[in-house]
Amino acid sequence: MYSKTSGRGRVLERLGLDAGTAGAYGHANPRGANPVASTAIEVSNLRKKFGDLEALRGISFAVKAGEIYGLLGPNGAGKSTTIGVLCGLVIPDAGTARLNGLDVVQNAVEARRSLGVVPQEVALYTELSARDNLTFFGRLYGLGGRDLSKRVDDALALVSLSGRAKEPIERYSGGMLRRLNIAAGVLHGPSVILLDEPTVGLDPQTRASILDLVRAIAAGGAAVVYTTHYLDEAERLCQRVGIIDHGAILAEGTLAELRRAAGEREIVALRGIFRPDQVPAAFARAEDVQIIKANEEELLLSLRSAERQLSSLLSLAAGVGEIREVAVKQPSLENLFIKLTGRELRE
């Protein structure tokens, strides 16, 4: 996709996001970290309660250098808390999280040296220029002098904002701000990058350019954790995906593994008014139909072929209520998500 000899590849190389130097480059290299460790992120059995709410119930996953790991889950699933732990903003009640071998609680400051975070919100100083913003964040990572100046130039080039570097960013479009938000997260050449829904609210063209950027960063050797609501993004971008809900990872694996787990089955979603207590008996006679969810407003059913089974299915459903809407979902990651959680990702 982006080779080291391409324009963006050269910029990434200068930023320390090159595959050959990841984890061992300049300021990105944390003291005491093992530069050759292939596992950049290790999360083990994380637990966290906020009052009575159990936000994390034993989350575990690992991400290798150069890998893009997708963390999928609806609002309140535990994604932000997990990211918060990795950033050192949330102290877990139990379990550990390590970045390049450094515990994020015990060695918080050192661990954060190798971490780049791109928050969901555009967290930038709007009254300042892009250059001033990047210079400030660079200084907080210990950069200075000509090195900082060069990295700022490179980061601006990476996100195609060199031409407007001196303007106050309050004049920028939403897409430009998002790109600058990413630049601020990768300026210091981190070996671990957390991107929290970086494409929310953007047009398809800008989304595509940001996905390209993330791919290029990962190709440079950084371990990337990418949270998103857009399943298509996860499918296009991530090598491995963890599906998280109610504070636990329900399924994890490569896209191929997850597709296999989803099976070649389709999902039929019926919306209307139903009598959920009668649903199991009504569908007991149906051949190879699994009930994923049944309530007064919705029935979610898994079946091998909607084309063959839909008419009989609708007859059975009509016996337990009134159907107002029918949707058939093809085998996909989304199907697996629905199958695992009983709800769609955006609910």
Partner: peptide
């Protein structure tokens, strides 16, 4: 929050 996740 962004400041708090820098190595400061």
């Amino acid at each position: 929050r962004r400041l708090a996740i820098t190595p400061v």
